[in-house]
């Protein structure tokens, strides 16, 4: 799969207009001389036929040589190494916060009072639909400019991370909450919930001890997808809130046609996505060992509903 990603990046970059040799020499506005351009092309193999370039490209990747950034003149591995921590931390924190919000929302929207349920459900839907740019702006206007509680841009303090994390977490929380609510409702109507109630379990206890665990499984699976969403959202958030990270790096690299950096970032993100998907799978199986037994890979039978009037 990584190979497919690498190939897509290779092809994609070549389809975008803009001469890589120029990018190496400092951008389109540079008054590069013909000799300089020719020298760069020779050095980077840009004058070779496409297939040869592709082969060389793959060859370098396989040996882990990501090359040097055209624009930053530093090894790509260094650039990524410096920035990746911030983005991963942002994504991880956002995922955690998203889970917290989602659990809260799911508990409310599966609650006993009807109006709480509809409000909770409405919030979930709206949250999932919010575009990040808009959400970031609104949060800044309300909490930074308006109320002055939080800083408008990241400034190294924990408070500076709150708005960026919320911007990423809220839409994900909406998605998570919707799925979790479905599972929770299923679980609450299942025979074991009836059995638990018959033992004297309170509604809250029922949700916390039983339903939440059932809801967690699809939530964990969705979290793998959410990770991809968070990383792409990081581009927006890091730019808006002036935070260091891979998202901003990628944006700049694409604008300036910095091929090695773009390639490397995309590959790293793809790799991280694979890892996260694997971890999510492991986690889901830990919660629900029945998944291990499904030979065909199908999901186990959904929790049956208890017949009330039988």
């Amino acid at each position: 799969m990584l190979w497919a990603v690498a190939t897509i990046v290779f092809v994609g970059i070549r389809l975008v207009p803009g001469d890589p040799a120029l990018a190496i020499l400092g951008g389109p506005g540079s008054q590069a001389s013909a000799e300089a351009l020719a020298a760069v092309r020779a050095e980077y193999g840009l004058d070779q036929p496409v297939l040869v370039q592709y082969g060389a490209f793959l060859g370098r990747l396989v040996t882990g040589d990501f090359g040097e950034s055209y624009v930053l003149r530093r090894p790509v591995a260094d650039v990524i190494g410096a920035q990746i921590g911030a983005t991963l931390a942002l994504a991880a924190a956002s995922l955690v916060v998203a889970w917290a919000i989602a659990i809260g929302l799911a508990l409310v929207s599966t609650g006993r009072s009807r109006w709480a349920r509809s409000i909770g459900g409405g919030i979930e839907t709206v949250a999932a639909a919010l575009p990040q740019f808009w959400l970031a702006s609104i949060l800044v206007i309300v909490f930074a400019t308006g109320l002055g509680w939080l800083p408008a841009v990241a400034d190294g303090t924990p408070a500076g991370v709150v708005l960026p994390v919320l911007t990423l977490a809220i839409p994900v929380a909406g998605f998570l909450a919707q799925i979790m609510r479905e599972s929770m409702l299923d679980a609450l109507a299942a025979p074991f919930s009836l059995a638990a109630r018959s033992r004297g379990e309170s509604e809250t206890g029922l949700r916390l001890r039983h339903a939440l665990r059932h809801a967690a499984v699809p939530g964990v699976e969705l979290s793998a997808w959410a990770f991809g969403y968070l990383v792409s959202g990081a581009v927006v958030v890091e730019t808006m809130f002036a935070m260091p990270g891979l998202g901003r790096t990628l944006l700049q690299a694409v604008t300036l046609r910095d091929v090695p950096l773009v390639t490397a970032v995309v590959l790293v993100v793809a790799l991280a996505y694979l890892v996260v998907t694997f971890l999510a799978d492991v986690a889901a199986t830990l919660i629900d060992p029945r998944r291990r037994d499904a030979e065909t890979g199908d999901r186990p039978a959904p929790t049956p509903r208890a017949e009330v009037a039988a």
């Binding site: 970031a136 702006s137 800044v140 206007i141 930074a144 400019t145 002055g148 800083p151 408008a152 841009v153 730019t239 808006m240 809130f241 002036a242």
Partner: peptide
């Protein structure tokens, strides 16, 4: 880079 947050940061 974003003008809105830049200004908000100044205001704040």
């Amino acid at each position: 880079p974003d003008p809105a947050t830049r200004y908000a940061a100044l205001e704040a």
